[in-house]
Design a protein around this nucleic acid. Structure first.
Lengths: 230, 230
DNA sequence: GCATATTTGTCCGTATGTATA
DNA sequence: CTATACATACGGACAAATATG
């Protein structure tokens, strides 16, 4: 039964791959989604004991997950007080958008050299956004917008840059939740995304950069204004 | 002896302050320096128990430090096997330099808008490199080169981008250690740094970008060639 | 201001699973 | 196959800090 053994070994290896993500990481994934979906509001405390009981993990494991998310700037740790969902302020937005301008702006310039797969991702994100808008589903429009900017970063072809973009976008998303009404907001930027893609399809990289810079200016202004009211 | 008790409590609190924020981070700092200085070679394993005993910290604390450095890609965690010093290969270099091109290239374009402090950091890094070269101290030249590229990133004025640059540069430094002879190597690039600064001082941002791109091409080629031999 | 309850910080022992000799 | 070494995750114990009445 050597062929059967091979099959079992393949399964075992696959299972091992899945299990390789530790419990703490899986817990962190769950918490990250909860935070980014705005289920727990920025500023609220996460109770160790209660959360541990709900998620059926030990305190140590939960604390490990907390540390992971703290390093992603989604949680903050106050000594002997506990962990809280982070509450970015307008200064964070300024810093964040300075980074996004460099990262995404630089990645867009790689369009001519980018592979077809990376370009397709940009097109798909725009298509998804248009489909969502057509159905009035602003949640889809919101996620499509995030996908669009991740796809722009993907043009550079660097997994490290992709990860950084993921971090930056997650933090921006958190900032949306500090203001109210986070989803409907994205609809206004869909035409700009369409415009950027249009420029790129004509290899007009410089025009695309300009439109993107315009997007950043508007989005940053919007967020800073919203957060300064708090 | 109430006054004595107060004094003890104050000391205890101060000790707590130091210990709380940095036990794991100080351990991580020590380990990071050890790894980046090439004292422990890429590929070697870090034993939890032995290291914990040497550094006099608990396993939990050490694991936290490991986690920090794993996040910085200086260590790798293999499931149920342990922690090892990472060994970047030529594919990592390609990915790494794609990211650096975007990050540093984008940041350089911020020179006209950058503050005087950020510009001064670039000048100082070049000056330090020249001084080191004049004395034949290639270790100083090496650290000056790292400082130069961090300073370029600093032109964007984003702490998040600075952090990312720090991570990328640390990883590059790790790659040097996979090849031999990591320090002397930097000397060849000093003239290029001087040239870039020269362009910037004349606000010739485009020329600076080109020289920087040239630097990336050469450095990437050097590293890829060196690592493919392994 | 004080005493109490709750929560967190830290460390330790143990059971289980995995890889290596 | 056994033995070992190690890592993972859990739960408990106790100290320290904070919050509450």
């Amino acid at each position: 039964m050597t062929s059967g053994d091979d099959w079992l070994q393949a399964l075992a290896r696959e299972r091992g791959d899945i299990d390789r993500s530790s419990t703490a990481e899986r817990v962190a994934d769950k918490l990250r989604a909860t935070v980014l979906d705005g289920v727990v509001k920025p500023g609220s405390q996460l109770n160790e004991k209660a959360l541990g009981e709900v998620l059926r993990v030990s305190r140590n494991t939960l604390r490990e997950a907390f540390r992971l998310l703290t390093h992603e700037r989604l949680l903050v740790h106050e000594y002997s007080r506990g962990v809280f969902v982070r509450k970015p302020d307008w200064r964070d937005i300024v810093d964040l958008y300075a980074a996004r301008r460099v990262v995404e702006g630089g990645a867009v310039r790689c369009w001519p050299a980018a592979g077809e797969k990376a370009r397709a991702a940009v097109r798909e994100a725009v298509a998804l956004g248009r489909a969502g808008a057509a159905q009035g589903d602003w949640l889809v429009v919101g996620t499509a917008n995030v996908k669009f900017h991740q796809a722009l970063t993907g043009l550079a072809g660097s997994s490290r840059l992709d990860e950084e973009a993921r971090r930056l976008l997650a933090e921006v998303r958190l900032a949306f939740h500090v203001m109210g009404d986070p989803e409907r907001f994205h609809k206004d930027y869909l035409p700009l995304n369409v415009e950027i893609l249009g420029h790129l399809e004509r290899d007009a990289v410089r025009d695309a950069e300009e439109s993107l810079a315009d997007y950043f200016d508007r989005a940053e202004k919007h967020l800073v204004a919203g957060l300064r009211e708090q």
